[in-house]
């Protein structure tokens, strides 16, 4: 059981997060909830990316007094760097999205996305 959790809490868990986020994006009516779901998806993907670079019983890839040489086992640093970038991008998108939501709310006085259909066809 513990083994299962260890193995699947990261892959399975992050995919679950993506799933929840995606479902939220597809089904919520409140625009802010949609953005939160989007953020959830981002988090899920980021977790997955980090998990893909994980090495059992390895250290953070920093050479310091504890691990004075790169001979020690390190986890993969690249996914961490990528995640750093993707977090920032996710933040930027969310912030922009929130600003848009504020503006849309000004116009329609509602956050319900199904009532905001000024553009169709």
């Amino acid at each position: 059981m513990l083994n299962f959790l260890e193995e699947w809490s990261f892959f399975g868990g992050s995919i679950l997060l993506i799933f929840i986020g995606l479902y939220g994006v597809l089904s919520r009516k409140n625009m802010i909830k949609i953005l939160i779901s989007l953020g959830l998806m981002d988090t899920g993907v980021n977790l997955l990316l980090v998990a893909l670079g994980y090495v059992e019983a390895a250290n953070a890839p920093i050479i310091n007094s504890v691990n004075p040489s790169n001979a020690a086992a390190f986890v993969d640093p690249i996914p961490q760097a990528l995640v750093l970038t993707s977090i920032v991008i996710g933040t930027a998108v969310l912030a922009l999205g929130l600003a848009l939501v504020m503006k849309i709310y000004d116009k329609y006085s509602t956050l319900n996305i199904s009532e905001i259909r000024g553009l169709k066809w």
């Binding site: 994006v25 597809l26 996305i113 259909r117 553009l119 066809w121």
Partner: peptide, 10 residues
């Protein structure tokens, strides 16, 4: 093209 962004995502 019914204007529902969630459908588009779907």
């Amino acid at each position: 093209a019914a204007g529902r962004v969630q459908n588009y995502a779907l």
